[in-house]
């Protein structure tokens, strides 16, 4: 079951284990420059508001009602990252797609879990996802673009603007796998005597947004440390997250969308931190596949003779904070 709680999606599988709880948040962030340089992780600037599509059934496109799920507002060319948190460290396999194109492999949305190439993220090992895994250790940032303009990963890969939004599916590990892990953790706990660190629009097509590949960022998608048989494939929950243009969000919900986030240059001038995450001893997925052929928004704009990004000044991130041991990836502006 999936519940909407304080602007987060909370997946629970009480039939599998009482600790099988996964929280997914959609973080506002600044858009990194789309200039083919590799940037560190930008901050989280707070959560996007989420609403049940059903609560505004008379004001959203018919397709959204069919899909069900939730919706959130994004400005055109605004960026986002997803944070994953399993409070008790319960393992989950999470599939993320945009426009029904898998963000780890570029393959079309499919049920079940594929290990070669791995088409899911292994939680809690993977604390967040900022974009499409275009090569080993590099992602291209998720950036909102209007569906139909040709920039989204969906349109570049499938040639169609059929779905938009973001799709998620979570599979919990089998209860016995978790119990075994918990016992091992308790043993380690006793030896080191320190607590474990838990990573922690109304009606028209113009309102519908999809995600497109933006600038390059250093982020690894980790190989699944579990065996295929460790996942409880019989238990899964999935959710369609619709993206409404922020300007239409007010018409749909009556609420103001969040303010426009700062540009990377403004953030940098304010001397605020960027982040770097070191996964210890973890293997990163090679990425690429169909995602390798994606053109970034800026590069595709050049081909089209278009200027799709309002601001794209390169920056030199000076203050980069290494993450781990409870340091939170948040900024304030």
């Amino acid at each position: 079951m999936i519940e909407l709680q304080n602007d987060a999606l909370v997946f629970r599988f009480p039939e599998v284990h009482e600790d099988a709880v996964l929280r997914i948040e959609f973080q506002r962030t600044l858009r990194i420059p789309d200039d083919d340089r590799d940037y560190p992780l930008p901050p989280g600037l707070g959560r996007f508001p989420l609403a049940h599509v059903d609560d505004f059934a008379d004001r959203v496109p018919g397709r959204w009602r069919e899909h069900g799920g939730v919706m959130l507002p994004m400005y055109q060319s605004e960026a986002m990252w997803l944070s994953f948190n399993s409070p008790d460290g319960y393992p989950f396999a999470v599939k993320v797609a945009t426009g029904k194109v898998n963000a780890a492999t570029g393959e079309p949305w499919a049920t079940g879990l594929n290990r070669d190439p791995q088409d899911y993220l292994s939680i809690p090992r993977q604390p967040w996802l900022d974009g499409y895994c275009v090569e080993r250790g590099i992602i291209r940032q998720f950036v909102a673009m209007p569906l139909g303009a040709g920039y989204t990963a969906e349109e570049q890969i499938t040639g169609e603007a059929a779905h938009g939004g973001l799709q998620l599916a979570a599979y919990p590990a089998k209860a016995e796998v978790y119990e075994r892990m918990k016992r091992r953790r308790a043993e380690i706990h006793r030896v080191v005597a320190s607590p474990m660190v838990v990573f922690e629009c109304a009606g028209s097509a113009a309102s519908d947004m999809g995600l497109a590949p933006g600038g390059r960022m250093q982020q690894e998608i980790y190989e699944d440390p579990y065996k295929a048989a460790d996942w409880e494939l019989g238990a899964t929950s999935r959710c369609f997250v619709h993206i409404a243009n922020s300007l239409v969000w007010r018409q749909i919900t009556g609420d103001n969308p969040p303010t426009v986030p700062p540009t990377a240059a403004e953030y940098q001038r304010a001397g605020l931190p960027w982040f770097r995450w070191y996964g210890e001893g973890e293997t990163a997925l090679p990425g690429g596949g169909r995602l390798k052929g994606l053109k970034s928004i800026f590069n595709l704009g050049k081909v089209k003779g278009d200027v799709p990004l309002p601001e794209n000044t390169s920056v030199e991130p000076g203050h980069v904070v290494p993450l781990g041991n409870g340091v939170v990836r948040e900024g304030s502006f």
């Binding site: 999936i2 009482e18 049940h52 069900g68 799920g69 029904k100």
Partner: peptide
């Protein structure tokens, strides 16, 4: 029991996609 109480929580509806 907890699982029965959780059944009362409003779920995000999954549709056809």
């Amino acid at each position: 029991p907890d699982h029965a109480v959780l059944r009362l929580v409003r779920e995000v509806r999954d549709g056809d996609w």
